[in-house]
Amino acid sequence: MKIVINPIYNLFILFLTLSFTSCEKDTPEIVEEQEVITTVTIEFKAADASSQTFKWQMDQANTQTITLKTNTPYEVSIAFLDESDPGNVKVITEEVAEEADEHQIFYEFSDVTVSYTSGESDALDSNNNPVFIHSIWTASSTGTGFARAYLIHEPTTKSSTTRNGFGGETDVAIDIPITIVD
C-alpha cells in the first residue's frame, strides 16, 4: 500500500499555518529588581548633635561636600537603599547586617587623614569583626579630599587596611568629597 501525499500541497498548508499563526506576544511583566542598590546615605553626627548627610543616588549628580572638624569624633552611619520603586523603598542595610560574614564596609581616604573605628550598635560578624555600618571617624589634620566608601561582598578576609587586601567583589564604591577644618 502506498500512502498518497501531495508534497506541494502539504508544504503549502504547513507554511500557511506557520505564517499566520497568531503570534502576538503577551505584554512582558516589569522585572522587579531585587538587589539593586540605588541609594547610599551616610550620616555624620557630631557630639553637639549637629548632623550632615551625604546622599549618593543613581542617575543623579552627587555634589554635596561633608565638612568635618579636626580631632572631633563623628558618629557615621551608612545606609544602602533600593529606591527603584519609590512606593516600596527597601532598606538593604538590614540584609548586610544579617549577613555580616559575607559583607564588609571599608573606607579609604584620599588627601585627607581620617581614622575610623567601629561605632555603637555596629553589626559584628561571627568572629566579632565589625562590619562598620556604624563607625566613629576622627580627622587629624585640615585638608580637602574625599573618602571612598566600599561595600564588599564575600571578602576573602575580614581584616585589612586596603581594598585589595579584603578581596571579594565590590558592590558599592562611591566617593564622598570632604573638607576638614580646624
Binding site: K25, P28, E29, I30, V31, E32, E33, Q34, E35
Partner: peptide, 12 residues
Amino acid sequence: PNTGVKRLIPDH
C-alpha cells in the same frame, strides 16, 4: 521576569 534582574534579552 522572576529573576529579579533586568532582562538581558527582551521577549521577542
